[in-house]
Structures are given as structure tokens and as C-alpha cells.
């Protein structure tokens, strides 16, 4: 009952956000210097007159702004995200073809960083002040300050170009025509570097948060109660401290979902990972603004999805939250 209401509320909110993003896209195109039709077609001057005319016709660019907005929103609401002049295909088609690769990458990086961050942070807090704590804290500090694209490039140099342990770029070995488990393994090997380099920053972030949160919980009254019952330190840490300390980390993970999807643009660009992040880079280079805005829209939808997942996760852990907002 509470869950259904919660989901309905969140769905409504998500749709509102997407609507606002569609409006934002519309405004951005109008804010760009020059003729909106040119902007939509991309690559100023390269589009032919017939196509520009079609665009004007379709989006009613000669009509008043509110009407144009209406046409634009109507298109977005049916997932008609425009037409890519460069690729001669609908934008939505191009994006959805690339979406699975990005979901795989961001999903893997998200899971990896959350699990690793929580475990490392808890470990550091258990051994606060000792060598292992210092090691984890310093590592977290370093990866927290490392540019994502640079760590990606450098790990490419070390692990694939110099050591040859892992494939350099791409999603799978081209021309190998693998199937089933062999293909999954091949994709998995390709996934390691992108997912790890994308996840490192977030691992560092969650580890720092988890450590701080554990130390804070350590002073809580209920931890004193647990000790007073005669429970062993291991049980107190696991059952009483870790479960409570994880809550702010999950909240943070939800807030950071947007960063993760943004980071995928850089990772995919470096590793030529055929997802929507790479697509965004290509659209950028080719000035294919319809695709650019389409990717922006869909990645926002992804973030909303990630947020929903973390909120559901939170509800599983914390019994205090019932019903809606």
C-alpha cells in the first residue's frame, strides 16, 4: 500500500522533471546563436535547404514560441526526439541502440563503487588510526582528486598498452563472432577497465562517507547499549553500526547518480565504449545538436531511474520510512 503510493508519487515527479528538461532543451536551442533550424540540423551551413525547410515545417519554427514549444513537447512525450541529419535516422533510434552498453557500464560502476566503498569505509573506521585506515584514507583522498578521463587514459597505458592484460578499447572483440558465455566473458573483459576507472571516484567518495558515518554512529547511544549487552565488537559493528552508517551513503549514492551518468561520457569516450556517452561525444564533434539534446534527455531519465533504485534500497534498510515523501 505504502509502496504503491510511493512509486506513484515518484513516477509523477519523474515525469514532471522530464517535462521540465524537454522545456529546457527547447529553450537551449532558442538560446543558441543563429537560426534554430540550423542549430537543429547541426553543422552550420552543411544542411541542405530542403531539409531546413522540412525542419521549419515540422517544428513550426515560423509560428509563435508557445506553439513551437507545444509541438516540441508533444514530440518528446511520444519519445520522438527529432531527426539526426548526420546519421539520417531518428535520434531515438540511435540512442536506444546505444543505451544497453551505457546501462551495463554505469550499472557495473555503480554496484562496484557502492559495495567497495561501503566495505572499505567500514574497514577503515573499524581500524581507525591504524595503518590500514591510513592506507584507505589516503587512497580515497587520491582517487577523489583524480580526473576521471586521465585515470582512464593512464590505466589504458598501463594495463592494456604496456602490460597487455586487458583489451584497449571497445565493447567486444570485433570479428570474433563469439556467442553465449564466451561472448559474455569477452564483454566482461572489455568492461573491466571502463567500469573500474568510472567507479574509482565514486568508490573513494562512498568510502570517505562510510568511514565518517561509521565514526559518527560509533558514538550513538544504541551502540553503547549493544556493548552493555555483552555483544562482541564484530557483532556490534556489523549489526548495529554498519547498518545505520550505510543510510547516508545510500542517500549520497542517489544524489551522485547524475555524476555517474555524466562521468560515463568521459569513460566511454576514452575506451570507445559504444554507449550514449560516446554518442554524446560524437554528436559534439559533429555538432549534431538533436542527438546531443536527445542524449541529455535520456540520460536524465536514467538518473531518475537510479534515484528510484536508491530510494527503494533505502526503504528496504530503514523501517522508519513508510508512505510517501
Amino acid at each position: 500500500m505504502g509502496l504503491i503510493r510511493f512509486l506513484a508519487l515518484r513516477l509523477g515527479k519523474g515525469i514532471l522533471v522530464l517535462f521540465a528538461i524537454a522545456v529546457l532543451n527547447f529553450l537551449l536551442v532558442r538560446a543558441a546563436p543563429g537560426d534554430p533550424a540550423q542549430v537543429m540540423a547541426g553543422e552550420a551551413g552543411a544542411a541542405d535547404a530542403v531539409f531546413l525547410e522540412q525542419l521549419r515545417e515540422r517544428f513550426g519554427l515560423d509560428r509563435p514560441l508557445p506553439e513551437q514549444l507545444w509541438v516540441y513537447i508533444k514530440g518528446y512525450s511520444t519519445l520522438d526526439l527529432g531527426f539526426s541529419y548526420r546519421q539520417q535516422r531518428p535520434v531515438a533510434e540511435v540512442i536506444f541502440e546505444r543505451l544497453p552498453a551505457t546501462l551495463l557500464l554505469t550499472g557495473a560502476a555503480f554496484g562496484l563503487s557502492l559495495v567497495l566503498g561501503v566495505v572499505l569505509g567500514a574497514l577503515a573506521a573499524r581500524r581507525v588510526g591504524r595503518a590500514s585506515d591510513s592506507a584507505i584514507t589516503v587512497a580515497a583522498l587520491i582517487f577523489y582528486a583524480t580526473p576521471l578521463f586521465w585515470i582512464a587514459l593512464m590505466s589504458q597505458v598501463v594495463f592494456s598498452l604496456k602490460l597487455g592484460w586487458l583489451p584497449n578499447v571497445g565493447y567486444e572483440t570485433i570479428g570474433a563472432n563469439l556467442t553465449g558465455a564466451a561472448r559474455a566473458l569477452d564483454i566482461g573483459r572489455h568492461l573491466v577497465l571502463p567500469a573500474v576507472t568510472l567507479g574509482l571516484f565514486f568508490t573513494a567518495l562512498y568510502a570517505r562517507m562510510m568511514r565518517a558515518s561509521m565514526l559518527e554512529v560509533a558514538g550513538a547511544d544504541f551502540v553503547k547499549t549493544a556493548h552493555a549487552k555483552g555483544l562482541s565488537p564484530a557483532v556490534v559493528t556489523r549489526r548495529h553500526m554498519a547498518r545505520n552508517a550505510i543510510l547516508p551513503v545510500v542517500t549520497l549514492a542517489g544524489v551522485q547518480a547524475g555524476q555517474l551518468v555524466g562521468g560515463a561520457v568521459l569513460t566511454e569516450t576514452v575506451f570507445a565504449w559504444p554507449g550514449i556517452g560516446r554518442l554524446m561525444y560524437e554528436a559534439l564533434v559533429q555538432r549534431d545538436y538533436s542527438v546531443l539534446l536527445g542524449v541529455f534527455f535520456i540520460s536524465s531519465a536514467m538518473v531518475i531511474l537510479f534515484n528510484l533504485v536508491t530510494d527503494l534500497l533505502y526503504r528496504v534498510v530503514d523501517p522508519r520510512i513508510e508512505g510517501g515523501a
Binding site: 522533471v17 528538461i21 532543451n25 537551449l28 536551442v29 538560446a31 543558441a32 546563436p33 542549430v39 544524489v255 547524475g258 555524476q259 551518468v261 555524466g262 562521468g263 561520457v265 568521459l266 554524446m280 559534439l284 555538432r287 545538436y289 546531443l292 539534446l293 542524449v295 541529455f296 540520460s299 536524465s300 536514467m302 538518473v303 531518475i304 534515484n307
Partner: peptide
């Protein structure tokens, strides 16, 4: 805060 910030930054800089 919901919008993927890096993607938004890309879009803004690219279009402006």
C-alpha cells in the same frame, strides 16, 4: 540536482 550535471554542462557549452 537531478539533471546529470556534466551532461548539462556539455550541452550548455556546446550550444552557447
Amino acid at each position: 540536482q537531478t539533471i546529470p550535471s556534466f551532461a548539462l554542462a556539455i550541452v550548455i557549452v556546446a550550444i552557447l
